[in-house]
């Protein structure tokens, strides 16, 4: 992906440039809001990451200005303000997603992934499909592996679905909480861990070779060919 980052904090800018390079994206880092709007209009890129608190032109104004000029590229806000009214204001201004500092590199990558996917196609899942050695039936939320069949709860299915969409990549806990439960805070108790364990047990009981790995300090990763 060709990405543009507008961030006035040099340390964060440097880190993100390195992460995106590691992830195979091409990132252009700009520090000035007004100049960045012109740059984005004159270059082709797949998504923009904007810091809300820029000294010259804040993120809200930048998005409005971009949308006014007819630029439809996906925009993610980076911000230090975590309240719901702030998030709503950001989304109302025309942003597609909203990320609160501090955030995990994987969180940003997962969100970019989701945005890119959304922009590329509105995906409708086929009735049944093969993943690894398992057949997934989204209508009945059922996984069959030969003779073995296991039924998933709605949230378990959504969880598996989100993880599969980001296959081979680490998905952070907070991203899962948002995507699966629409929860934007840390509920304390290890709710995600518990749900992942349960899903994992169900997959194992069906003899599926789909697996979910826990990566300490980072999140979870979906794999289908380890077992």
């Amino acid at each position: 992906m060709r990405l543009v980052l507008v961030e006035d904090d040099p340390e964060l800018g440097r880190q993100m440039t390195a992460w995106m390079a590691d992830a195979g994206h091409h990132l252009t880092w700009l520090e000035q809001g007004a100049a960045a709007v012109d740059w984005i209009c004159n270059h082709s890129c797949d998504a923009a990451i904007l810091d809300v608190g820029l000294p010259d032109l804040d993120g809200f104004a930048m998005v409005e200005s971009l949308r006014k000029r007819g630029m439809q590229l996906p925009v993610i806000f980076l911000t230090a303000r975590a309240g719901v009214p702030d998030r709503v204001r950001g989304l109302a201004a025309g942003a597609d997603d909203y990320l609160t500092k501090p955030f995990a590199a994987e969180e940003l990558l997962a969100r970019l992934d989701a945005l890119y996917r959304r922009a590329a196609q509105s995906q409708s899942l086929p009735d049944r499909r093969w993943v690894g050695n398992s057949v997934l039936d989204p209508v009945r939320r059922r996984i069959s592996c030969g003779e073995e069949v296991v039924d998933l709860q709605p949230r378990e299915w959504t969880l598996l679905d989100v993880l599969m969409k980001h296959e081979g990549r680490i998905v952070p806990k907070q991203f899962l909480l948002e995507q699966v439960w629409d929860i934007h805070f840390d509920p304390g108790t290890n709710v995600v861990d518990a749900m992942i364990c349960r899903l994992r047990r169900k997959l194992e009981s069906a003899g599926s070779n789909l697996s979910i790995e826990t990566i300490r300090g980072k999140g979870y990763a979906f794999q289908k060919d380890l077992v």
């Binding site: 904090d9 340390e11 964060l12 880190q15 993100m16 390195a18 992460w19 230090a80 609160t100 500092k101 501090p102 955030f103 995990a104 590199a105 980072k218």
Partner: peptide
Amino acid sequence: RTPLARIRGNLES
């Protein structure tokens, strides 16, 4: 939050 973000980034690296 901004310094926390910086530290977090370095720790991830």
